[in-house]
Design a protein around this nucleic acid. Structure first.
Length: 273
DNA sequence: GCGACAG
DNA sequence: ATCTTGTCGC
């Protein structure tokens, strides 16, 4: 009896120390990957003109035009939270049709810790991208939209940045909830949105003065915004344009489709059991 | 010390 | 992330 009363706190202490150590090394990894991060335009293509897309398709120039937009998301099993399905989709930005889809069911060993989402989710998604690249699919994305933040992150290096750097792809981070960072709070954001009710986008500037992203009412008259931030090799202005082009509903279509299809994948798996 | 904390 | 029904509206 007394033994357990003594050992329990010791075990908890050990666990807490290990937790701190692991996150410390993860912070170092984030800092070192961050040196490769590009926060400006760095891609070979240009945006399509959707109002007259016929013309854009057969443009006289030989410039590359953005067409293949990827989306990634994970869903989790309700029975076993360590079982997840990662999905990669690629849509045609001109009509938002799904051109490619692939899913992978995996067992996760790393827990979700705020600020360290990438260590849990990135491995599966990178594997899906790698598989697509090595299979020489003609639809390999020119840009990736990620379910999670970019530089809107405690150390300026969220999941979207992590994936962008490691996959060497332009990425855009999309948050469905605000990660409270650099003095930003939901109350402040709501206040700003109410003040400028004419605008559907407000820039998120932290206490440090840095521009971290944008809160965007992607659906007409919707109160709940989405949070757009730069992932890799793109500017916030371009990221916002692309998000607008891909929003049929509140969540941009590439991410929404990845979400829907990853859930379907788990459903099927459950059904087979 | 307390609260906050993407998915 | 996940558990959850109906319901109000275009």
């Amino acid at each position: 009896m007394t033994k357990t009363k003594l050992l329990l706190p010791l075990l908890q202490l050990r666990i807490a120390v290990n937790f701190k150590k692991r996150n410390g090394s993860r912070m170092l990894i984030q800092d070192s990957l961050k040196r490769k991060l590009i926060i400006q335009e760095d891609f070979p293509w240009r945006l399509p003109v959707l109002s007259n897309r016929e013309e854009a398709e057969t443009s006289e120039t030989c410039d590359e035009i953005l067409k293949y937009v990827g989306g990634v998301d994970l869903s989790f099993s309700k029975d076993d939270p360590s079982v997840a399905c990662g999905t990669l989709v690629v849509l045609d930005i001109a009509n938002l049709n799904v051109l490619y889809q692939d899913s992978s069911v995996v067992k996760l060993h790393i827990p979700y810790i705020p600020g360290f989402l990438a260590f849990r989710e990135a491995p599966v998604l990178l594997e899906l991208l790698k598989k697509m690249k090595t299979s020489a699919s003609p639809f390999y994305p020119q840009l990736l939209m990620v379910d999670g933040n970019g530089i809107l992150h405690p150390r300026g290096f969220g999941l979207a940045c992590h994936l962008g750097v490691l996959a060497d792809l332009p990425t855009i981070g999309i948050g469905k909830n605000l990660h409270h960072v650099d003095g930003l709070t939901l109350a402040k954001v709501r206040h700003c949105l109410e003040e400028n009710s004419s605008k559907d986008i407000i820039t998120l500037i932290g206490d440090s003065g840095r521009t971290l992203g944008a809160a965007m009412r992607s659906k007409e008259g919707s109160l709940k915004p989405i949070f757009v931030s730069v992932g890799h090799s793109i500017s916030l202005a371009t990221a916002i344009k692309i998000v607008k082009m891909t929003c049929r509903f509140r969540i941009p279509e590439p991410i929404r489709q990845a979400d829907i299809r990853s859930k379907e994948c788990l459903q099927k798996l459950n059904h087979e059991k």
